[in-house]
């Protein structure tokens, strides 16, 4: 089936995007990424630990940018200025790589996006030539504004980051997809495989997750489950589900040719 995810003109076979945080070690990170079939992985940009041996193992060795498309994020940034600075550093770090995940958070309890700062950062980044995939609320008006600014993917939350609460408002995701032409990717809130399948059945272009895999008892097995769920949900969406018929059953077997009752 020729069904590819296209982001900023680049084609991907997998519609599952995976974060690289919270794993036990780099070996588990890599094993989970491989089991998920993902091609796009998020990474964070952080200060080097000055006291630490500079020859410690490095994420870039375990997850080589030659094999995975890196999506540096701005996790932990609470202002447009900090998010822009972080992604400028990421671009320098990754040799001019311009595909980024913008997220500007509102408060540390909810990690809910601050859409005002997000919009300001998106304008600056697009003007500087970044290809911006943007984490945002599930507000359809804001989603459209972010597309109009030039973001290459809109990534609404399905529920709070790291909550595993699943798809809380499918109707808002639908409203976003009705308005936005760039890929809509559910980012945040997926807890288990059925959540990924639901997102894909709704027509989302992809799903991005981290804790749902890294926080599972067996992250590598969950990564495999997420791969299948994402694919199953996508196929179900493309296949077009049967209409729901409320209070009206319909037999699957022929109604003609049923043997008659012996008591007649």
């Amino acid at each position: 089936m020729n069904d590819k995810l296209i982001i900023a003109g680049k084609t991907y076979n997998s519609r599952l995007l995976v974060g690289t945080g919270k794993y036990k070690d780099f070996a588990e990170t890599r094993a989970a990424l491989d089991a998920s079939g993902t091609e796009i992985v998020t990474v964070a940009i952080r200060r080097t630990n000055l006291g630490q041996n500079p020859n410690e193992p490095n994420l870039l060795d375990a997850v080589p940018p030659s094999k995975f498309t890196y999506l540096p994020n701005t996790a932990g940034c609470y202002s447009a200025e900090d998010a822009v600075r972080t992604l400028r550093l990421a671009r320098e770090l990754l040799d001019g790589h311009s595909l980024v995940k913008l997220e500007v958070l509102g408060d540390p309890q909810s990690l809910y996006p601050n859409v005002i700062e997000t919009i300001a950062a998106a304008k600056t980044l697009v003007a500087e030539g970044f290809q911006v995939m943007v984490y945002t609320s599930d507000d359809p008006i804001i989603a459209k504004q972010l597309e109009d600014i030039g973001c290459v993917a809109i990534m609404p939350l399905a529920s709070l980051i790291g909550s595993g609460m699943g798809i809380l408002n499918p109707w808002n995701l639908q409203l976003i997809m009705d308005r936005v032409r760039v890929p809509v990717i559910v980012d945040a809130g997926v807890g288990t495989a059925s959540d990924a399948a639901i997102a894909m059945e709704l027509g989302c272009a992809g799903v991005l997750m981290n804790t749902a895999i890294a926080g599972a008892q067996n992250p590598v097995l969950m990564a495999s489950a997420m791969k299948k769920a994402t694919e199953a949900g996508r196929e179900a969406y493309l296949a077009g589900r049967m209409p729901k018929k409320l209070y009206s059953a319909s037999p699957s077997s022929p109604t003609a040719g049923i043997i008659s009752s012996v008591r007649d």
């Binding site: 690289t20 990474v43 964070a44 080097t48 994420l59 994020n73 996790a75 980051i161 981290n210």
Partner: peptide, 10 residues
């Protein structure tokens, strides 16, 4: 000065 690296993150 800020000196940064890429680390695991979601």
């Amino acid at each position: 000065l800020e000196v940064v690296v890429a680390v695991g993150g979601g």
